[in-house]
């Protein structure tokens, strides 16, 4: 118990109350849907190529498939991104880097695992140097295939958008 005359408690309470009010406000329907709509159409993946699926990821950002139509713009700095695309195999050395990159990204953040290697190791499932992304990161969407078609990448983005707009993924708490 803190003494009631202690000023810091008043300040603490005020701040807590303000946060609560803000959380209540952004979780209210019109603002919440606006917010989720905004997040769903500004998914920026960090440019972090882990393995060969990067070739198909490149193709999906290229003219034929042009995933930028979904507001999906590959970006360089992890500080400005909210999607981590695991493009294929995650080796032990790379897994460390993946965790660093993930930790640097601001909330809310999402992970998409692309390719059989990114789900269960694919053809390399019994390799001594392969890590399954789902063991180290919270994966939201899996794309099977080796490599997946760029259409499947687009499909995964649409599925992630759908899930965000259903309001299951993003929560604001005090």
């Amino acid at each position: 118990m803190v003494c009631a005359l202690d000023g810091s408690m008043w300040v603490g309470n005020l701040e807590k109350a303000a946060r609560k009010a803000a959380a209540w406000l952004v979780n209210k329907t019109p603002i919440r849907s606006l917010r989720e709509w905004g997040i769903a159409f500004s998914l920026w993946p960090v440019h972090f190529t882990t393995a060969c699926c990067g070739a198909e990821f490149g193709a999906s950002a290229a003219p034929k498939f042009d995933t930028e139509r979904f507001g999906f713009l590959p970006f360089i700095a992890s500080r400005q991104c909210n999607v981590l695309f695991i493009e294929g195999t995650l080796s032990k050395k790379m897994a460390e880097a993946a965790i660093w990159v993930y930790e640097q990204m601001p909330d809310p953040k999402f992970v998409i695992a692309m390719g059989a290697c990114g789900i269960d190791g694919g053809i390399f499932w019994n390799s001594y140097n392969v890590v399954r992304p789902k063991d180290i990161l919270p994966v939201h969407v899996y794309i099977p295939g080796c490599p997946p078609r760029p259409e499947a990448v687009a499909q995964a983005i649409i599925m992630l958008q759908r899930k965000i707009r259903e309001g299951e993924l993003v929560t604001y708490e005090v």
Binding site: T50, E56, S91, S127, P147
Partner: peptide, 29 residues
């Protein structure tokens, strides 16, 4: 070594036909 997936080792436990997709994967393009 960031994408080292031990193709050479895995080839020793896969059969000859199964190695065809295995050796393709490293150089996808």
């Amino acid at each position: 070594g960031y994408v080292h997936r031990s193709v050479e080792k895995l080839a020793e436990v896969k059969k000859y036909l199964q190695i065809i997709p295995l050796v393709e994967r490293p150089s996808l393009a």
